[in-house]
Computed example of a mutant assay.
Amino acid sequence: MTDYDIDACVRAIRERHSGPFPKSALILGSGLGRFGETMQMDSVIPYGDIPGFPVSTVAGHSGKLLIGSINGAPLVCMQGRMHLYEGYPAHRLAIPIRTLKALGVEQIVITNAAGSTHLDMGPGSLMMIEDHINFSGQNPLIGPNDDRFGDRFFDMSDAWNADLRGQLQAAAKAEDVTLHSGVYLQVAGPNFETPAEVRMFAQWGADAIGMSTVPECLVAHHAGMKVAGISVVTNLAAGIAKHALSHDETITEANKAFENMQRLLARFFADGHKAA
């Protein structure tokens, strides 16, 4: 079996979950894994039980596929993700997203923890991603194109789907949750950025900086899925923050923001299911 054997991944998941598969998916970033505990669960599948599926190795990413519902809305949830800095070649990050597409997922919400370039968008803030900058130097779509999923060359004007962004804003208003909107920039990591890099990124128009999310967006958009994203601001970026940055801080601040994120996502998926 090769890295691209999506059919084998689909079969492994179908063996563990034979019922209808949700059309909505959610990727949980650092510190947000316990959202899965609020779901009504039908199936739980460790990534290691899916052949060829990359396995999460970072604290705060438990590495399980959760299939069930939230507030009555069917949902499949990736409880943990993979990152370039873990040593995975970029093309392997396409496997989970393409597997979900092959199982019938039509829309995906991607969450992450990120550093803010703005003093008025500090730790605990939520930022809806309206656009992104890929500064990782890598792309999971490099290599032979898989025509089953999409064309070799594709437009990125609406990569972060306008309709889903409108639905997120409506859910935030209904739950009285402050939801910023801005541009997310991805670096490869694993180190945090230097103050000079942060100043440059801010001048480019980046509002939040992180080490994930863009690969998933690229693969999902290429495959025709609607994509939305939310960054949980866990720190002010280097040179703006007055202290050294750490992954422990990332987890701690994400936990503090969890309640607002949970209410926002639960409302978003429930309202979308009712409207479908």
Rank of each mutant, 00 (worst) to 15 (best):
D3N: 14
D5E: 14
I6G: 02
C9P: 00
R11L: 14
R11M: 08
A12F: 09
R14W: 09
R14P: 09
E15L: 07
P22D: 04
K23M: 08
K23S: 13
I27R: 05
L32S: 00
G36Q: 02
E37L: 10
M41H: 11
M41C: 01
D42R: 14
S43P: 04
I45R: 00
P46M: 12
G48Y: 10
D49M: 02
F53M: 15
F53S: 01
V55E: 14
V58R: 11
A59H: 04
A59S: 14
H61C: 05
H61T: 02
S62D: 15
G63Y: 08
L66E: 00
L66R: 03
I67K: 03
I67H: 00
N71T: 07
N71G: 05
G72M: 10
P74E: 02
L75I: 11
G80R: 02
R81T: 11
H83N: 06
Y85Q: 10
E86S: 05
E86Q: 10
G87Q: 11
L93R: 06
P96R: 04
I97M: 08
I97T: 07
R98N: 04
T99F: 06
K101M: 01
A102S: 15
L103D: 11
V105K: 04
E106D: 13
Q107V: 00
T111W: 05
A114V: 10
T117D: 00
T117R: 03
L119D: 03
M121Y: 04
M127R: 01
I129E: 03
E130C: 09
H132Y: 11
N134K: 05
N134V: 00
S136H: 13
Q138D: 09
G143Q: 06
P144R: 07
P144G: 07
P144K: 05
D147Q: 09
D151Q: 10
D151E: 14
F154R: 03
M156Q: 10
N161W: 02
A162L: 14
D163S: 14
G166N: 15
L168D: 01
L168C: 05
Q169C: 05
A170K: 09
K173R: 13
K173I: 12
E175G: 04
L179K: 06
L179I: 06
V183C: 14
L185W: 02
Q186F: 04
V187I: 15
G189Y: 07
E193I: 00
A196R: 09
A196N: 03
R199P: 11
M200N: 07
F201R: 03
W204E: 12
W204Y: 15
G205S: 09
G205V: 11
A206I: 05
G210A: 10
C217N: 02
L218A: 10
A220L: 11
A223Y: 01
A223L: 09
M225P: 05
K226E: 08
V227T: 12
I230A: 00
S231H: 07
V233N: 02
V233H: 08
T234P: 07
A238G: 04
A241M: 00
A241Y: 01
K242A: 13
A244E: 15
A244M: 13
S246W: 08
H247P: 01
E249H: 07
I251W: 06
I251L: 15
E253D: 06
K256T: 13
K256R: 15
A257H: 07
A257S: 12
F258C: 03
N260G: 15
M261K: 05
L265W: 09
A266C: 06
A266M: 03
